[in-house]
């Protein structure tokens, strides 16, 4: 089966057409235009760690500017915003994030004797796997807390990343171009504005 990758610029071109409503256009254009902000919640070290972590969690093509997921998380935590729930066994989100990110550093020190940010990609991936499985040594989370924190963190980061029009273009999503309607909705039925795979 074909993997999708739309021609670069597909989504941006659609944004300027009548297939996209003004509200949708505004939401996506704002995201496209958004520049990274100085962290308010994260320390510079934490922000740096999260940047490097994100690069392992969803490697981005080097042919375009990188999508920033650190600022939206930082903004949420700085303003104490919630997504409606959290695992009871984890501390409140700001503490969970601080403790969780610190866990990567602690595990890096315990295993490699240096900070996470100074490890190579393969070493970082090993530690990410251990945090995800709850088997990392040297961290303050219990194994179940470690698993739950990682799951929550990953879910939030990938939601931010794959909400970005540039990331959506790369997996072939044009659902935002839903005006006036979709008539061809069955298997293998495409509208003219839905390109096939490259």
């Amino acid at each position: 089966m074909a993997s999708f990758r739309y021609p670069i610029g597909t989504v941006r071109a659609l944004l300027d057409t009548d297939h996209v409503t003004p509200a949708t256009r505004q939401a996506l254009q704002t995201r496209l235009d958004k520049q990274p902000e100085q962290p308010q919640f994260f320390t510079p070290d934490e922000a740096d760690l999260l940047h490097q972590l994100s690069a392992r969690l969803f490697p981005q093509p080097d042919t375009r500017p990188s999508i920033d997921v650190v600022s939206p998380v930082d903004h949420r935590l700085a303003h104490n915003e919630s997504d409606g729930w959290r695992y009871d066994l984890l501390p409140a989100d700001p503490d969970a994030w601080r403790q969780g990110l610190n866990g990567f550093q602690e595990a890096a020190q315990a295993q490699f004797g240096k900070p996470f940010t100074q490890l190579d990609g393969g070493q970082q991936d090993d530690l990410i796997g251990q945090i995800q499985q709850g088997t990392a040594i040297g961290t303050s989370f219990t194994p179940l807390q470690s698993k739950r924190f990682f799951e929550d963190m990953l879910a939030e980061l990938v939601s931010l990343y794959f909400s970005h029009p540039l990331a959506q273009e790369e997996f072939g999503y044009v659902g935002m171009a839903d005006k006036p309607r979709w008539d061809r909705v069955g298997l293998n039925e495409l509208e003219a504005r839905e390109p096939g795979a490259l």
Binding site: T24, Q26, L28, G84, W85, L160, D178
Partner: peptide, 16 residues
């Protein structure tokens, strides 16, 4: 908007 993130105001986001 036809955008999941922009529509998050529809949910009860006080923490449970």
């Amino acid at each position: 908007a036809t955008d999941e993130r922009a529509q998050e105001f529809l949910f009860w986001n006080d923490e449970r």
